[in-house]
């Protein structure tokens, strides 16, 4: 069998046309808002409300909008992107280490209360993030962390779903390999760091990406925690500008241009790493 039987030859059959048309319709739906925002990013505030949304205006000013986007408020937008990268990058990195170690520990050792602990962590997956955010704000307020970058970073480092994925993926590390390393006299930490972790890298990348996007897209946590714009991530910064449209409509253009730019950045990043998503999902979704 050279090709999968589900891939018949590339002939123009009715089912081929039908399937492709259906998928094209869906693609138009998914692309519509993205096309709108990219076009809107080239418009002046007046044209934004005065011209057709899917057509360029007579006087496109993308460069002008970009220039203002990156310089407005002492280059606040650049700070926000940097903050988002810090929160998402560092948060996801630590989250990946913590949950991989925990998932590995649960998968490869037996200890008292193991399944209870795992059940508790899984219950954590079920708790809506919105439920955690408000009490966490009052709690962190009592230890003076509210308003600091740590108030967003620390909670972002906990990924119960990551533990779930890591436990499943620990199956890719054969017990025999661990046993052999032990016989060679390696300590448990060393085995994890030098033997198990390298074998789990695809899983770790998946956890990292998942958490990265979760933190990047998070709005409520920074919304409740942060008050100074210097600490804002992109999501919060853009809504801050959006609220200022009440006093200066030019902010509409800044919000739209900023949305387009941040979208291009993250979508590009995700597409570049798409194969890792698939790799992680396969095992994550079918085992367990």
């Amino acid at each position: 069998m050279v090709t999968r039987s589900t891939h018949p030859g590339r002939s123009w059959t009715w089912s081929r046309i039908g399937t492709t048309s259906a998928l094209l319709v869906a693609a138009v739906y998914f692309l519509l808002p993205i096309a709108w925002v990219v076009i809107a990013a080239t418009k002046s505030p007046g044209d934004l409300f005065g011209t057709n949304g899917l057509w360029l205006s007579d006087t496109p000013q993308l460069l002008h909008n970009l220039q203002r986007l990156f310089t407005e408020n002492n280059s606040a937008f650049v700070t926000w992107v940097a903050n988002s990268v810090l929160y998402s990058g560092l948060g996801a990195f630590v989250a990946t280490l913590l949950s991989t170690a925990c998932g590995y520990g649960i998968a490869k050792y037996s200890f008292l209360g193991k399944e209870k602990l795992f059940a508790l962590i899984l219950a954590g997956v079920m708790v809506p993030a919105t439920v955690i955010a408000l009490p966490l704000y009052f709690l962190l307020n009592t230890v003076d962390l509210v308003g600091t970058r740590l108030s967003v970073l620390l909670p972002s480092m906990v990924s119960p779903f990551g533990v779930y994925l890591a436990r499943i993926h620990s199956a890719t590390v054969p017990d025999e390999v661990i046993e052999a390393a032990r016989l060679d006299g390696a300590g448990e930490g060393r085995i994890f760091a030098l033997v198990a972790a390298p074998m789990m890298i695809p899983a770790m990348v998946t956890i990292f990406l998942f958490q990265f996007v979760t933190i990047w897209n998070n709005y409520l946590l920074p919304l409740v925690m942060l008050s100074s714009e210097k600490t804002f991530p992109v999501t919060l910064g853009l809504t801050l500008w959006n609220s200022q449209t009440q006093r200066d409509p030019y902010f509409y253009t800044l919000v739209v241009t900023g949305s387009a730019v941040s979208m291009v950045v993250l979508v590009g990043l995700m597409m570049g790493l798409q194969r890792f998503w698939k790799a992680g999902m396969t095992t994550g979704a079918t085992k367990g």
Partner: peptide, 11 residues
Amino acid sequence: LETITAGPDGG
């Protein structure tokens, strides 16, 4: 100056 979320919106 710290630009913050508008007062009634949480500031």
